[in-house]
Nucleic acid binder design. Structure first.
Lengths: 92, 92
DNA sequence: GACTTATATGAACAAATATTTATATGAAGT
DNA sequence: ACTTCATATAAATATTTGTTCATATAAGTC
């Protein structure tokens, strides 16, 4: 039951910027410029984090003209975020 | 919906040693020496990580004679681990 | 085909986190 | 009281991770 996969996933989500990107994508597909705008961060920073999330399999992308659209790889990812939210309010 | 609480929780779990400690505690209360034995790590290292988990509210402890017994603060923590496991096998 | 827009990438640098080492504490046994 | 066993802690160090900066690519526009 490959523990390093689980850790890779956790580490990927356990970063403020990436966590916020996932939250943004909860609302559906977004292009990079929208994510940048919403988070108010550097383009390059967002790009690095998008790559990390993608490498981890959590998000997917497709090109649409000049823009590149990102989306959650699977709705079940929302479940994790919700789960974390519940636990965090319970303890921490 | 305090995002930093969620992040503190995630960062706490997203470490191999701490993750394994939690897994060990799935099986019920354990004293520090048992955890050290099971993980095969330095006493001091385990102690640091136990503190981190405790600070985060994920585990509790009680003294029993010379030993100190640790346990999960709440069974709902198992749910998170399971959730992560499922997602990790799905992607990553 | 030069120019702009949108995004990605690599290398340098900065910050955060984990690990080790050495020492302290506190309960129990003698 | 002294010693041992079990655990904790602080400071030093090592490692990992995130951020910035400068540059590259790729598609669309003039």
């Amino acid at each position: 039951m490959a523990i390093d996969k689980q850790l890779r996933l956790l580490k990927c989500v356990a970063d403020e910027t990436r966590f916020q990107i996932l939250m943004t994508l909860e609302g559906g597909e977004r292009c990079v410029c929208e994510i940048i705008e919403e988070l108010g961060e550097e383009q390059s920073l967002i790009s690095h984090h998008l790559r990390a999330l993608r490498k981890c399999g959590l998000i997917r992308r497709r090109r649409e003209g000049k823009k590149i659209m990102y989306r959650l790889a699977d709705p079940s990812i929302l479940g994790l975020l919700t789960n974390v939210e519940k636990l965090a309010s319970k303890f921490c």
